[in-house]
């Protein structure tokens, strides 16, 4: 019944022959992944808020989803963002080949494309704000701005982080600490792709649908 009876104390190994050092890189990336999942819960709450506040009543006689969405612009933003993510992914392929210049080139392309994404999105929202659709206008616009800009803030941090990692790769090379950070940054970039496709599908596309 109890496990105690099963084990013969005579031949048992009592002490590990060596310290079982956990795999540092795998441990660090798992922790960062858990952080990303917790971040996903914040995004889920923002999506839930958006869903609740995306009602005619929450527009408070201001613009509704159909009036502020430009799905075609959003598609261009999608292309820019996914390309930036792909560029970062390809720089990790260069990492596999120990190609330091390839890694740095990938970083550069990713940063440029990410910056392009931010400029385009900033332009879109500045345009919206100039037409009077500011977040203070209605509950719907508050939810819209917050959800989209929360993603944009992540991209800003992704760019900042990529720049820092470019310095580290250039100065320190591929030490274990640099490598685990590169892997974490990969998770971070790829995760933004996830969030963006939901923004694209459930904010931009359904906004054009007039389902609500």
């Amino acid at each position: 019944m109890s496990k105690m009876n099963d084990m013969d104390p005579a031949g048992a190994v009592l002490w590990a022959p060596h310290d079982a050092e956990p795999d540092m890189i795998a441990t660090r990336t798992l922790g960062f992944w858990l952080y990303l999942l917790s971040d996903a819960m914040i995004v889920a709450s923002l999506f839930a808020s958006y869903l609740v506040l995306n009602h005619r009543m929450n527009a408070a006689a201001g613009p509704t989803a159909g009036a502020v969405m430009h799905p075609l612009t959003a598609l261009w933003e999608t292309i820019l963002l996914l390309s930036a993510i792909l560029a970062y992914g390809l720089s990790l392929v260069a990492l596999k080949r120990k190609d330091r210049r390839g890694v740095l080139a990938g970083f550069g392309v990713a940063c440029m494309l990410g910056l392009g994404f931010l400029v385009m999105e900033g332009h879109e929202f500045a345009d919206l704000a100039l037409r009077g659709a500011v977040p203070e206008r209605s509950g719907y616009l508050s939810a819209l701005y917050t959800l989209v800009l929360y993603h944009a803030v992540h991209i800003v941090f992704a760019l900042l982080w990529t720049a820092v990692m470019a310095v580290q790769v250039a100065r320190q090379g591929f030490t274990p600490n640099v490598v685990y950070r590169l892997l974490n940054l990969k998770l971070f970039w790829f995760f933004q792709g996830f969030i963006w496709i939901y923004v694209f599908c459930f904010v931009d596309l359904t906004g054009a649908l007039h389902v609500h």
Binding site: S45, A48, S49, V52, L53, A60, E136, G139, S142, T146
Partner: peptide, 21 residues
Amino acid sequence: YAGTHFFTAGLGGNLMLYTDL
């Protein structure tokens, strides 16, 4: 701080949304 209307009663906010979250 920013004057948005997530949880206000007026201007399209939904106060029960806060309670929910």
